Amino acid sequence: MILHISIDAHNPLQVATALAEVLNGKVYKFFTPGSYLVMPFDKHGTHIVVFKEGDVWVPGTDAESAQVLHAEPIKLVANHAAISVPTTQEQIEQIGQRQGWRVLTRKQGDGVPFSAIEFWVENRILFEFLPSEFVPQYLQTMQSEMIEKILGQPIQLMPA
């Protein structure tokens, strides 16, 4: 289970505020200046950290923990997250439209294995939001027999 993720944004407070609205959460200042924490206070402790554009995690040295440094920002990223949310499809679409961000509702069977709402934060970071009525379909799709039907047999791992 993924409990938290971090992203960067051109306007971290605006992004954190929009995500908090989708998640029915609250926004707090985070430890790194100019970054914010979005907390929906669900039973899993889920949260999203929104850093300034270009802030990245880097490994520490020896026994030192990871730290955040500023790097050259990039336009698009490979990482994304699917998150079940307490808001409706209509609310999510309204929030995205108000921000000027791409929002697309995909329906199962239209070339995708499950229904989800593509919510493109700042038109560069993909979140797949699943309102409560989308979640059972997602969970059914993520069972081993369905995944094998979609992707084939798992790769047989060899000990290193």
Rank of each mutant, 00 (worst) to 15 (best):
V121W: 05
V85M: 03
V77I: 07
S132E: 15
K29V: 03
F30G: 02
F129G: 05
V38Q: 02
R98V: 07
G109K: 08
L151F: 14
G45S: 01
E93P: 09
I117T: 08
Y36R: 07
R98G: 03
A116Y: 10
S6W: 14
F41Q: 08
P59L: 00
K52T: 12
V103K: 01
T61M: 13
Q156Y: 11
V49W: 01
L19F: 04
S35K: 00
S132G: 08
I95W: 08
A160Y: 13
Q94D: 11
Q94I: 06
D8F: 12
P12M: 08
H4T: 05
Q67T: 15
E128T: 10
V85S: 00
E64F: 07
V15N: 03
H44N: 15
Q14F: 15
K29G: 04
M39A: 15
L37I: 03
S84F: 02
P136K: 09
P154I: 00
G34E: 04
I117V: 06
T141L: 08
E118P: 05
D55N: 10
P154W: 02
T105S: 09
N24Y: 10
R102P: 07
V38A: 01
H44Y: 13
T46M: 09
E21W: 07
L126P: 12
V58L: 10
G111P: 08
L130A: 01
V121K: 00
E93D: 14
L76Y: 14
H10I: 15
A81K: 00
A66S: 10
E118L: 13
L13T: 11
D55K: 04
E72Y: 14
F129N: 03
G60R: 06
M146H: 15
S84C: 06
I7Q: 08
T141A: 12
L104V: 15
Q89T: 10
K43T: 10
N79L: 11
I2T: 10
F129K: 10
T32Y: 07
I7A: 06
V77M: 13
F134G: 03
S144K: 11
A160V: 10
A9Q: 09
V77E: 14
T17Y: 04
V27R: 01
I48N: 03
L23M: 09
P154A: 06
L126D: 10
I155V: 12
R124Y: 06
V77G: 10
A66C: 11
V56D: 09
L104S: 13
P136F: 01
N11V: 13
V22K: 00
Q94V: 07
N79F: 14
I7C: 11
T46F: 15
A81F: 05
D55Q: 09
V27Y: 03
E21P: 05
I48C: 05
L19Y: 04
Q153I: 00
G45E: 01
R98T: 13
L151C: 13
F114T: 06
G111D: 02
V112E: 08
E90H: 09
P136V: 00
D62P: 02
I147D: 05
F31P: 06
Y36S: 04
D110L: 07
G96F: 03
P73K: 08
Q156C: 11
V49A: 09
V135K: 06
A78V: 12
P113Q: 01
K29W: 12
L151Q: 09
A160C: 12
E133P: 03
